[in-house]
Computed example of a mutant assay.
Amino acid sequence: MERRYFELSARLEGRVPPEVEKVRAQLERAASTAPVVDDFLPPELRVPSHDRLDGRMMPWKQPLVLNGEMVACAECGAYRDWLILSTRDQIWLRCRAGHQQHETRLDTAWYNRNSGPADATHATFEDCLRHLGH
Rank of each mutant, 00 (worst) to 15 (best):
122 H>L: 13
97 A>E: 12
103 E>C: 08
8 L>I: 05
90 Q>L: 14
71 V>T: 04
119 D>F: 15
8 L>D: 06
39 D>T: 14
23 V>K: 12
114 N>R: 13
29 R>T: 05
62 Q>H: 12
120 A>R: 09
114 N>C: 14
96 R>T: 07
108 T>N: 14
73 C>R: 00
14 G>P: 04
90 Q>C: 13
42 P>M: 10
5 Y>M: 10
103 E>N: 06
93 L>P: 00
91 I>W: 07
113 R>H: 12
107 D>Q: 08
35 P>D: 00
72 A>L: 02
49 S>C: 05
107 D>K: 07
122 H>F: 13
124 T>S: 15
115 S>I: 03
63 P>E: 05
35 P>Q: 02
86 S>N: 14
72 A>D: 02
27 L>N: 05
14 G>T: 05
10 A>H: 11
86 S>M: 12
33 T>L: 13
49 S>K: 07
120 A>M: 08
110 W>N: 06
42 P>E: 12
8 L>Q: 09
109 A>N: 14
12 L>I: 02
19 E>N: 03
29 R>N: 07
53 L>V: 02
48 P>M: 00
7 E>V: 07
82 W>A: 02
66 L>Q: 04
114 N>M: 15
17 P>D: 07
57 M>D: 01
19 E>L: 05
115 S>W: 01
97 A>G: 06
52 R>L: 05
22 K>R: 02
